[in-house]
Nucleic acid binder design. Structure first.
Lengths: 198, 198
DNA sequence: TCATGCGCTGACCGGGCGTTCAGCGCCCTG
DNA sequence: CAGGGCGCTGAACGCCCGGTCAGCGCATGA
């Protein structure tokens, strides 16, 4: 039983094509230099067509970000087991994020641009980013309650870990031949768990 | 003996006024929404006047960033003693950066925007940012040679620490009543030196 | 095969912004 | 006090880009 009519399938296909095109153009031109014209060309449609599926440029960018970061959240959530020691959870999160950005290299610039929104454009983007922090914060808090890690302001700590890791993830995206993922996961997990003092 | 003539003094004053105005406007509007018109009004001059002192918008933004980040580097350098244990160096760097961004709150948005440049605009900005990483990397490397901290890829580690700290610094700028600076310095230094495992 | 309409197109519009430059007035000098 | 030039001004210019819409052609169904 096809719950979705043929029209809906076509519609969804178009929407996704355009979002994918937007992501690629933003990745290579940057957020502010990405024009509707170029996005349309990249998607193989006319400029006007985009406006049949998205109200305006903001909505297109918003929805594109939304879809990607929802996928990222899902990936992280799927990697997290229920009864896992903290170290495994941390490594699972990092590994999931590394893998996600390896498979979606085009996403990184959109992500960079929308973490700290400039003008308006905070409808969906910034809350979604904050949700990443809050998720990590919750994991940290749970580990503190279990006595696995020291008691430290979990939100601050989450911010520190996420942004530090993101910096390494972005660096990897820009590198021609990044080191193996386990090496960077070990580096981060080791530094944050054991500290760097000898 | 005035090495600088009156004209030079006036010129420098104008240049600085305009740069300061640019920084304030970028802080409140965001990089892409900051117009030459508004920067001119903020500086109390006509739009055309800006072009007597800067070739174009890019040069203005560039020079503004340059001046601020040079001041930041100087502040960090001044805070670093020669023969200091690593922990003190790390705390000195963090404290200097916290203090700098507290006194130059307007700088943070320019800093965010130019860390990862979009189009061209990499003449001075990105290298200056990389220099921050390299400076931290050098401090880490020295500490490794002295056996104060474990041997870990110093550039990666520097990236992790700087970006993690920057995230907290930016968070503080956006907070109405941030916690005492020592609290956040302790958090970062503690987490990175001793780790968070109990 | 023809009529219908729906989805797509892309030329066009309007506004905004960076950049220019002709002129104005103030200061400095003789 | 008169003349000149230098620094500043802001109206005007042109480009660029987001957004629109009249019309075209293809698929569909009779």
């Amino acid at each position: 039983m096809p719950a979705r009519s043929k029209e809906e399938v076509v519609q969804e296909y178009r929407v996704h094509s355009i979002e994918d095109a937007a992501m690629r153009v933003i990745a290579r031109r940057g957020m502010s230099a990405a024009t509707m014209q170029e996005i349309a060309e990249e998607a193989g449609v006319a400029k006007g067509t985009i406006y049949l599926y998205f109200r305006d440029r903001d909505e297109l960018v918003d929805k594109t970000f939304e879809r990607a970061i929802t996928a990222l959240h899902a990936r992280v959530e799927a990697a997290l087991g229920v009864e896992q020691p903290f170290e495994e959870k941390l490594r699972a999160i990092l590994t999931a994020e590394f893998k996600f950005f390896r498979e979606h290299r085009e996403f990184f610039r959109l992500y960079i641009s929308l973490r700290h929104p400039e003008g308006r454009q905070k409808r969906t983007c910034e809350p979604r980013y904050r949700a990443r922090i809050e998720r990590m914060s919750a994991v940290l808090q749970q580990a503190m309650e279990r006595g696995e890690i020291r008691r430290i302001d979990p939100t601050r700590l989450a911010l520190f870990i996420i942004e530090g890791s993101d910096a390494i993830i972005i660096e990897r995206v820009l590198e021609d031949a990044p080191p193996p993922e386990e090496a960077d996961v070990d580096l981060i997990a080791g530094a944050i768990l054991e500290g760097i003092r000898t």
